[in-house]
């Protein structure tokens, strides 16, 4: 599946491990949360990412956070907004500096909100029109509340400019 970063398609260098498949010895791997310690125990010490489901508490990743390069959030349906809070909590509470990837059912209309919550990449379906996502990213020039992007507060009130 294509991966979107800042409105552009990038190559996905991560190997995604499904539930009980073997974890490759080398290279970056993205694993389900229950297999995180197994992946971290690899001899190669290559990069590890973890898949978080919406019902998981972000705080459970705290002990491993410094060893993670990628955290993938799951959206079972676009209306389920728990991932927005998870992303924001990963940045604000766990000070996670790596890649936060949104996966699952996501609409382009949610793109700028995901970015403002700290998401950096989005996994999108093969057949989508990228222009919708680019448009959504660039549409708004102004917002009226603080966000993870720390847009500079300007003018009056809670206003910040996004460009």
């Amino acid at each position: 599946m294509p991966l979107l970063e800042k409105g552009h398609v990038i190559a996905d260098r991560w190997q995604i491990v499904t539930d009980d498949a073997a974890i490759p010895e080398n290279g970056p791997v993205l694993v389900p949360a229950p297999r995180l310690s197994e992946a971290l125990g690899r001899a190669s010490k290559d990069e590890v990412g973890v898949i978080l489901t919406p019902d998981m508490e972000v705080a459970t990743l705290r002990p491993a956070i410094d060893r993670l390069s990628l955290i993938a959030l799951t959206f079972p349906v676009f209306r389920d907004g728990r991932g927005f809070s998870q992303a924001r909590a990963l940045r604000e509470h766990l000070h996670f500096k790596g890649d936060i990837r949104a996966t699952g059912h996501i609409l382009p209309d949610q793109y700028d909100m995901l970015l403002r919550c700290g998401v950096t990449t989005v996994s999108i379906a093969d057949d989508v029109d990228i222009t919708f996502w680019q448009k959504a990213m660039d549409r708004y020039t102004v917002a009226s509340q603080p966000s993870i992007l720390d847009e500079k507060s300007e003018g009056h009130g809670l206003r910040r400019f996004m460009k």
């Binding site: 907004g81 927005f84 949610q110 009226s144 966000s147 809670l158």
Partner: peptide, 16 residues
């Protein structure tokens, strides 16, 4: 009004 602005297109609380 402050709460109106804060809640308008809130990035985290639009899919509650």
């Amino acid at each position: 009004e402050i709460l109106r602005q804060w809640s308008t297109r809130h990035p985290e609380f639009t899919f509650l």
